[in-house]
Simulated assay, not measured.
Amino acid sequence: MQDIVGAAGLTKGAMYHYFDSKDDLLYEIYARIIRQQRARLETIAGASDAPVGRVRTAAEDFVVTTVQNLDEVWVFLTAAHRLRSDQRRGVETERRRFHDTFTALIAEGQESGAFRDDIPADLVVHQFVGSVHHLGTWYDPTGPLPPPTLAAHYAELLVSGIEQRDI
Rank of each mutant, 00 (worst) to 15 (best):
G143T: 05
R56S: 07
K22P: 10
P141L: 01
F128G: 07
I119A: 01
I29D: 15
G143H: 10
R97S: 11
E28V: 08
H133I: 05
A121E: 06
Y154M: 14
R54N: 05
E28Y: 12
I29Y: 14
G109E: 06
R89G: 06
F98L: 14
H81V: 09
G143I: 09
H81L: 12
A79N: 15
A79G: 11
P146H: 05
Y30G: 04
E60V: 02
I162D: 00
V132S: 08
F102E: 01
H134Y: 14
T149P: 07
T137V: 10
Y27W: 14
V129T: 12
V159M: 08
T103G: 01
L105F: 02
D3V: 00
F102T: 00
T101E: 10
G9T: 03
G161E: 09
Q36G: 12
Y27P: 06
T142P: 07
S21F: 08
G161L: 06
A104L: 01
I44A: 05
A79K: 15
Y30A: 02
G9N: 05
Y16P: 02
P144T: 08
N69I: 03
S112H: 13
T65W: 05
M15T: 01
V132D: 12
A151L: 04
A45P: 02
R82W: 12
S85M: 12
V64A: 08
Y139S: 01
L135S: 03
M15Q: 11
V5N: 05
T78W: 10
